[in-house]
Amino acid sequence: MMPDLAPYTAEVLGAYAAALGLLGALVGGVLLRARRVRRQLDEMEHRRGK
């Protein structure tokens, strides 16, 4: 299944690892901030509603 990347195995895998790693970090960061802000706003609105 794995294609033969020789003699550029390290370069191709490195490029994909860097790209997917950065994309993963970006998506993770955006989702974490979204969740945190949403939770804080919900808490604040809940407090005001009491």
């Binding site: 998506v27 955006v30 979204a34 802000v37």
Partner: peptide, 27 residues
Amino acid sequence: LIFVALVLIGVRTEIRARRMRALVMRE
């Protein structure tokens, strides 16, 4: 599509953060 999805999430977060700032100011 990744860009569009992340920008939509980001704008929604910024709108919520703005609402939070407005509530803090009001308090």
